[in-house]
């Protein structure tokens, strides 16, 4: 079991969460080429090592989180809210 330290609820089993995916995807502008959109939607870095990824605390507070996790050892370095403004609120309340 992976334990994820939710900034709102505390440390919980990963079975409470749903895995989202790569948190580093930047979507291009609407008038960008098909090639750029294909790259953003379908192509992935598929990192072997630490990556930023999204998780949804679907059976908890239902907030989306950005987790920095190793895809080899499953070690977690950081857990933050997805929304940048909420990140600030959580930081200020520490």
């Amino acid at each position: 079991m992976i334990r994820i330290n939710c900034p709102y609820c505390g440390e919980r089993d990963h079975s409470e969460f749903s895995y989202g995916g790569d948190a580093t995807i930047n979507y291009p502008s609407l008038d960008a080429s098909e090639k750029e959109w294909t790259e953003a939607i379908f192509f992935r870095k598929n990192i072997k090592g630490f990556q930023f990824e999204t998780w949804h605390h679907s059976n908890g507070c239902r907030m989306w989180l950005v987790v920095e996790r190793s895809t080899v050892t499953h070690e977690i370095k950081s857990v933050k809210p997805c929304h940048p403004d909420l990140q600030k609120v959580v930081e200020n309340n520490k």
Binding site: I2, S15, Y19
Partner: peptide, 13 residues
């Protein structure tokens, strides 16, 4: 197992 991983071991859920 529903999350991306290169670990060659399964998880309990």
């Amino acid at each position: 197992d529903w999350y991306k991983s290169y670990a060659q071991r399964g998880n309990l859920p």
